[in-house]
Simulated assay, not measured.
Amino acid sequence: MASGGPDACSNEDPNMSVPFNKLIARIDLDAIRENYLLLREVAGNPAPVIKADAYGHGLLPVARTLAQAGAGSMCVGSVEEAVALRGEFSGRIVSLLGPLDKADAAAVVEHGLVPYIYRREQLAMLAEAARNAGGQARLALKFDTGMGRLGFRLPDVPDLVATLAANRELRLELVASHLATADEPARDDYVVRQRGVFEAVCSELRAAGLDFACTLGNSAGLLAYPELRYDLQRPGIALYGVNPFCGTPLAHLGERLRPAMSVRTPVAQVHSLDAGESVSYGCTFVAPKAMRVAVIAAGYADCYSRALGGKAEVVIRGRRAKVCGRVCMQLSIVDVSDIPGAEAGDDAWLLGGEGDDPVTPDELAGWWGTITYEVFCLLGLNKREYVDGL
């Protein structure tokens, strides 16, 4: 990580999944640190979710930043990702996918991980791995309280209690579930329903003499539902500066969050168009009048979606420029008629940008027809540079 003063930069992990292009995803570690501290101020014990390479922001640089800020627990996706993190972080590492085979189970025991367990076969694998290693296996029981995805159900509790009692090498540490509608204020009835199921599960487990911490709240749950914070919270998208309540009556709850990713690429050429001339494949855009357009080095091969053609805007020299016509494999064309002096070599910001009108993650996701999570995960596959004021 870079050091030595404000706005220090480092190309710490340039070898991303999209090689041989000019896009740079700029990751502001200061913003991630500030967002984490804000969430901790609200909830007390957030375990940052840094799965999927920290939502495209970079697993290890983000983890180091969060550890320095005081995070004692972190959540990743696969066991493999958890093992990669263990070399950098000595605290609790929760694997949200849990062990999917015997190799995963052995790694859980070897590295002291806390995996989500949501089917009986995983318990058997984990117990066998612990016995083979002559040690204990930490675990989190995952319950489906209404997401309809992974998890045990309330009627499974007696069998789980018996299994844990019969396998003393299994050490229950967490009981977890996941909220389906916490970011939709109009669906708070479903949140209440999930809470009721979750608390019934926890009550039955405790009545059987088990001791554990509870975790249910995601970013939206942490911000809007104090009663769902329990022992541990799992903020994800808010950590990276997206307000989960953007555009809703609860938007004020996340208004202090600051986006951490911005993405730029160079302008390759600027040229004029006469009225009636077209650009890009299919001639879907025809100039209504004399124009100047810039060709920028970004396309769908760079994870800048073809769906953005004719919809998205970029920022050049602090001003907006709309994408004209179809997005190509490695090029797009934008209208710079109202940007005096725009020229080859300028930065075109696909996300974020200079000046008072940056492209926001929610805007880009809206033009794209997706959600901010996908925007980050895809654009984060490009080369990254890190900014850290520490």
Rank of each mutant, 00 (worst) to 15 (best):
residue 136 Q to D: 14
residue 119 R to W: 04
residue 66 L to H: 05
residue 137 A to Y: 14
residue 82 A to N: 08
residue 89 F to H: 12
residue 100 L to T: 11
residue 110 E to I: 03
residue 95 S to H: 00
residue 86 R to F: 01
residue 131 R to S: 13
residue 104 D to P: 14
residue 133 A to G: 04
residue 84 A to M: 12
residue 117 I to P: 00
residue 96 L to K: 00
residue 65 T to I: 04
residue 119 R to V: 11
residue 109 V to P: 06
residue 132 N to F: 00
residue 79 V to W: 09
residue 58 G to I: 14
residue 119 R to L: 11
residue 90 S to G: 13
residue 89 F to R: 10
residue 134 G to I: 13
residue 77 G to W: 00
residue 101 D to E: 09
residue 72 G to L: 07
residue 87 G to N: 15
residue 100 L to R: 14
residue 134 G to C: 13
residue 61 P to F: 05
residue 105 A to W: 05
residue 112 G to V: 08
residue 135 G to E: 09
residue 103 A to Y: 02
residue 122 Q to Y: 01
residue 57 H to D: 09
residue 61 P to A: 08
residue 123 L to Q: 06
residue 76 V to S: 08
residue 56 G to R: 01
residue 88 E to I: 01
residue 55 Y to G: 02
residue 127 A to P: 13
residue 136 Q to S: 12
residue 85 L to V: 06
residue 98 G to R: 03
residue 75 C to M: 15
residue 83 V to F: 00
residue 109 V to T: 10
residue 73 S to L: 10
residue 57 H to F: 02
residue 108 V to I: 14
residue 67 A to I: 04
residue 87 G to H: 13
residue 51 K to D: 06
residue 97 L to Q: 10
residue 105 A to Y: 06
residue 118 Y to F: 15
residue 119 R to A: 09
residue 60 L to H: 03
residue 126 L to M: 04
residue 100 L to W: 06
residue 106 A to E: 13
residue 102 K to I: 03
residue 102 K to P: 04
residue 54 A to S: 12
residue 58 G to Y: 11
residue 84 A to G: 13
residue 57 H to T: 05
residue 81 E to L: 06
residue 93 I to C: 08
residue 102 K to L: 07
residue 114 V to H: 13
residue 118 Y to M: 03
residue 117 I to C: 07
residue 74 M to A: 08
residue 121 E to Y: 02
residue 58 G to E: 15
residue 104 D to M: 10
residue 115 P to M: 02
residue 56 G to P: 06
residue 74 M to P: 06
residue 61 P to G: 05
residue 68 Q to L: 13
residue 110 E to A: 15
residue 99 P to C: 05
residue 87 G to Q: 14
residue 130 A to H: 08
residue 124 A to K: 14
residue 78 S to C: 09
residue 129 A to L: 07
residue 111 H to F: 12
residue 118 Y to T: 10
residue 94 V to C: 02
residue 82 A to R: 09
residue 60 L to D: 01
residue 129 A to D: 10
residue 114 V to P: 04
residue 89 F to A: 04
residue 82 A to D: 08
residue 121 E to Q: 14
residue 117 I to K: 03
residue 65 T to C: 15
residue 67 A to Y: 00
residue 62 V to P: 04
residue 104 D to S: 12
residue 72 G to E: 13
residue 137 A to R: 11
residue 122 Q to M: 15
residue 95 S to P: 02
residue 64 R to G: 01
residue 111 H to C: 03
residue 113 L to D: 10
residue 51 K to Q: 05
residue 96 L to W: 00
residue 93 I to E: 05
residue 101 D to N: 15
residue 75 C to G: 12
residue 95 S to C: 07
residue 117 I to V: 14
residue 88 E to P: 03
residue 51 K to R: 07
residue 105 A to C: 10
